[in-house]
């Protein structure tokens, strides 16, 4: 089972070098920077932090290569993305109303009846989240079955090369970026299974992609209600925690009602804000020693994460 280290964002306060030193990783590290999309290869700084012994898996470039060689697969993937967008749009419409109900009921918890009503409103939101996750999973499964992704020649050749690089690496570092692109490519290259045999260090979108489900969030976007929304399944390397990178800038952490709703809505998962310098060590999916994380609580505060 993978040893996983989840980190806070690395751009302004990089800590990945300390982790590499501490874990005594003596050998090449495979880097995944596919979330940076067309900037994937601009990884000099990252390589420096990883002590120079980096092998970039170049999943974005390889993905582009596959799609140029295999237009049928690209067309099918475009269709899948479009179906997912529509599913997301419809889910969002329902979600806005369901969360509005939760917020209204949060304001009037004086009576037992209101408390009960609130619990049911949360159940309704959780049911929506679960249904959406299931719908997206179904779409993905149908896509994989119909198009036999792993068996296609274009994919097999690239996977083979990726496997060969991974074979010679002691760990995998997964950077952030576009979480949708990242998780799509990690899945296309079958890394959900392969990563289980490696030490994985991931941050920002990289951390989100490894979890059981991916939740998109921003409390104060320039448009819309800022309701966190389930995007789809992640790679499932851990399930107990839900990472919220850049929490300081993306969440209104002083707004106790918003924090409380987030914490309660995603139970039994623990919502973990991941800011600069924070770190979760996971072993067999559970929190291990050396972690320095926090969690959102049901009373709207942020507390230290219990071991």
């Amino acid at each position: 089972m993978a040893r996983i280290v989840l980190l806070g964002p690395q751009r302004l306060r990089p800590t990945v070098r300390e982790i590499v030193d501490e874990l005594a990783i003596s050998g090449p590290i495979a880097a995944v920077t596919a979330g940076w999309q067309e900037r994937e290869q601009e990884d000099d700084e990252l390589a420096e932090h990883l002590r120079g012994s980096t092998r970039n898996l170049e999943l974005y470039r390889r993905g582009e290569r596959i799609f140029s060689e295999d237009p049928e697969l690209l067309a099918a993937l475009t269709e899948l993305r479009s179906a997912r967008r529509e599913a997301q749009r419809l889910y969002r419409l329902s979600l806005d109303h369901a969360l509005a109900a939760v917020r209204s009921l949060e304001d009037q918890r004086e009576s037992e009846l209101a408390v009960e009503e609130l619990a049911e409103a949360f159940d309704a939101v959780r049911a929506l989240d679960a249904r959406h996750l299931e719908r997206v999973s179904r779409l993905q499964t149908a896509f994989r079955k119909r198009w036999g992704t792993a068996r296609r020649r274009s994919v097999r050749r690239q996977r083979h090369e990726v496997d060969a690089i991974l074979e010679g690496c002691k760990a995998v570092a997964i950077a952030g970026g576009h979480v949708g692109v990242l998780v799509e490519l990690l899945s296309l290259f079958g890394l959900d299974e392969r990563l289980r045999r490696h030490t994985v260090i991931a941050w920002s979108a990289g951390a989100m992609a490894l979890g059981q489900r991916i939740v998109l969030f921003h409390d104060s976007p320039p448009q819309g209600f800022g309701n966190a929304e389930v995007w789809g399944p992640g790679l499932g390397l851990f399930s107990r925690f839900l990472p919220f990178p850049h929490a300081r800038t993306r969440l209104l952490v002083a707004d106790r009602q918003r924090v409380a709703i987030l914490a309660r809505r995603f139970l039994p998962q623990i919502c973990v804000p991941m800011d600069d310098g924070e770190r979760l060590n996971l072993s067999v999916g559970r929190l291990a020693r050396g972690s320095s994380g926090r969690r959102l609580t049901r009373d709207g505060t942020i507390a230290e994460l219990d071991p």
Partner: peptide, 18 residues
Amino acid sequence: LREGLSWLFPGPLWMVYE
């Protein structure tokens, strides 16, 4: 400008976590 530009040209705010 914030409201206008982000409505006309929405950025990848919800999808990108660097």
